[in-house]
Design a protein around this nucleic acid. Structure first.
Lengths: 218, 218
DNA sequence: CTCCAATCTGACGCTGGCGTCAACTTTGAT
DNA sequence: ATCAAAGTTGACGCCAGCGTCAGATTGGAG
């Protein structure tokens, strides 16, 4: 609890470092509370689904009180959004990496699905959230910026692959929609019927890879 | 579930004919009220979506009163279920016909998607309902018997086509899930981005037809 | 140690939607 | 024309969940 108040000293330092715990008790609980609410969100949304969940559920589960909740988030949607954003922020770089590391189009398609499925279905709570709140997930996802970015990146990749002749030419927007939508859909249904993430990813990869081949090149 | 009370009279007649209006005033309003509620449901669900809709909305829109509503349906879910069932009851025979009339696997796949898309997206209210209540639609659909039947028929067809060698062999359950899910998904997203039902159906047909080819035959 | 500001708390009032039911209207049989 | 049964009506009581705010608590600067 000091580090920075002594301005003379910190002059050139600080702003970058966040590690050595210059965290005051205040900031600590603040962080802890926020985390508690988000954790509660993960559990509650995974448990009863977004629609059925109430702010009170989150409050109860977080161990805080209603007033405090509203100090951190304006409503349950904000919590949900944050959770979804978190997932997408994790997914995006994974997809970028899958693209960068794969040598051909086939590899890219397969690896991208593998990354997506791993990210979305890897963790049990996340999986449950996806299963029980598909629609909320979808609408949150579609008006947030993360998915727009993700979809843009994907579409761009698809288009440049098409242009380069590596992949045939198809309606990129529809294909993007299909890939994202089908992943969510088959992910949920597939795991409901007991398929492993690997099986699901392989299935999706095969389906889309060949599916794309069905479109005539320009 | 009605029209039979006039047992003495109808002796030889009735059950088949519904036209000549042997309908008492009583039965007439009964039918009219039920219809009014279902119509209200179509409009309301299409307008604000299932989750946001309230029984009061249905009541208001139908022009009846709360008490009357509860004479016909126990809650809004029952109304929604009925509407969904209606759609599926229409879809099922269309799919059967598509299969019967098509000469090869390619035709079957394309025609089936065309039929599905036409049924689901043909009517504006239906389209809106699908767009705004995807999740409710999905869950209603998945615990109702109609989709089970539909999915079973589809899976059976796919499996026998696989066995006959007309189509390659693939995980039929996953493929079924993918086809149904992707249709809903791409249908909603595609129409949101202004694609016509035809374009959507063609896209889906092409994607899946070639997609299936990617799986090795046994 | 003192004290202000930041933060937490939970009881409170409010809203909106739910399902009911006693009173009323309509139907159709006699 | 009469009347019982069927059906309709909407005001009513109820309750879950919301967001707030006055007062209690806590952190940390002096």
């Amino acid at each position: 609890m000091n580090g920075e108040t002594s301005d003379a000293v910190g002059a050139g330092v600080s702003t970058e470092r966040a590690e050595p715990a210059p965290l005051g008790r205040r900031a600590q609980t603040k962080r802890a509370n926020r985390t508690a609410i988000l954790d509660a969100g993960r559990r509650v949304f995974a448990g009863v689904g977004y629609d059925a969940a109430t702010v009170r559920d989150l409050v109860r589960e977080s161990g805080l009180s209603p007033g405090t909740f509203y100090n951190y988030f304006p409503d349950k949607q904000a919590v949900f959004r944050e959770l979804v954003d978190e997932i997408l922020r994790e997914l995006r770089p994974r997809l970028v990496r899958a693209r960068a590391e794969s040598i051909d189009a086939a590899g890219f398609v397969r690896d991208a699905f593998a990354a997506a499925v791993a990210t979305l279905l890897g963790d049990p709570d996340r999986f449950a959230l996806l299963q029980r709140s598909t629609s909320a997930f979808r609408s949150c996802v579609f008006d947030g910026e993360q998915l727009t970015l993700l979809a843009d990146e994907l579409r761009t990749d698809l288009e440049s692959a098409s242009d380069a002749g590596t992949l045939p030419s198809f309606p990129a927007e529809l294909m993007t929609a299909a890939m994202i939508g089908t992943t969510i859909e088959v992910g949920a249904l597939g795991s409901q019927m007991g398929r492993t993430p690997d099986e699901i990813a392989t299935f999706l990869g095969t389906l889309f890879l060949s599916g794309m081949a069905g479109f005539v090149t320009p």
